[in-house]
């Protein structure tokens, strides 16, 4: 905790993330309008619509604020689900030798499968909905977490205190929950941030090529609409329609990047950091 406080980048990232989270949570109170409410279309920014209105007359600022909700919802739910699956498999595989071979082959399989193409093709065949996106991401993002947790558990289970607890006849579930899991928590956080960063990028891409949920517009979906608009490039519309949505994505990704850096520095203080950004 203290270490984190000393990391400036980490604090900036955390600040940004909290900022977006607050917007997401309090969207109905912050947004000037219901994002589905219609006004005149493609109005330029004015006192009533700070970022103007979109092609069907919805207030862009409100859309952006509610879009935070959708984007972060998908990202956080999917990454928690993915990391959750990863933790479970990692713990089980690492601790109980008898599952190791098959589950690790499965993990390897999921690690080698070309993720994004598979996610795109599955998303294309499902009805576009927020939950379906969460589901696909969760299914294809757990493997790396599982592998990392397993490696950690393998070293932990041979530590003296774990061996000792087992000798005293403690149940496996008890040992896993109280003597192993707490030690992998920092790793879990790093994974959560890593996976979130990937998912928000992938989600915006999927929405951009038309696989998003049209009833719950994420930032990527807003960019999709803007890109399809005939005069987006030659008029000034892009400045308040395309740019804010794009920058929100960029800032959120940066937030995750910074937090990830700070956490890695704590968990893995050697110089050999993983190269993700």
């Amino acid at each position: 905790m203290k270490q984190y406080k000393n990391n400036k980048l980490g604090l900036v990232g955390l600040g940004l993330l909290i900022f977006f989270l607050l917007i997401a949570v309090f969207a109905p109170y912050i947004a000037p309008y219901d994002p589905h409410q219609r006004f005149d279309s493609t109005e330029h920014p004015n006192s009533e619509h700070l970022l103007g209105t979109n092609h069907v007359g919805q207030d862009i600022l409100s859309e952006l604020i509610y879009g935070t909700r959708v984007s972060l919802f998908i990202t956080l739910f999917a990454s928690i689900a993915a990391v959750g699956i990863g933790i479970f498999i990692g713990l089980v595989v690492g601790y109980f030798k008898r599952f190791d071979f098959y589950l690790m082959r499965l993990t390897d399989l999921f690690l080698t499968i070309p993720k994004l193409p598979v996610i795109i093709i599955i998303a294309a065949f499902m009805l576009p909905s927020v939950w379906n996106l969460v589901f696909v991401f969760a299914i294809f993002e757990w493997a790396i977490t599982a592998r990392i947790i397993r490696a950690e558990v393998l070293t932990l289970r041979h530590r003296n205190y774990v061996e000792a607890t087992r000798l005293f006849g403690a149940k496996d579930s008890h040992i896993l929950a109280w003597h192993i899991f707490p030690y992998v928590v920092p790793l879990v956080f790093v994974q959560l941030v890593l996976v979130s960063r990937y998912i928000i990028l992938a989600e915006s891409g999927l929405s951009f090529i038309g696989l998003g949920d049209p009833t719950a517009k994420s930032w990527g979906m807003m960019l999709h609409d803007a890109f399809a608009y005939p005069t987006i490039f030659i008029s000034d519309l892009w400045m308040w329609w395309m740019l804010p949505a794009g920058l929100c994505i960029v800032l959120t990704i940066l937030a995750f990047t910074f937090i990830g850096y700070a956490l890695e520095e704590i968990v893995n203080p050697s110089l050999k950091k993983s190269p993700w950004i």
């Binding site: 915006s204 891409g205 990527g220 994505i249 990047t257």
Partner: peptide, 8 residues
């Protein structure tokens, strides 16, 4: 730069 989605 790495935080920019390619399409954006």
């Amino acid at each position: 730069l790495a935080a920019f989605p390619p399409f954006f």
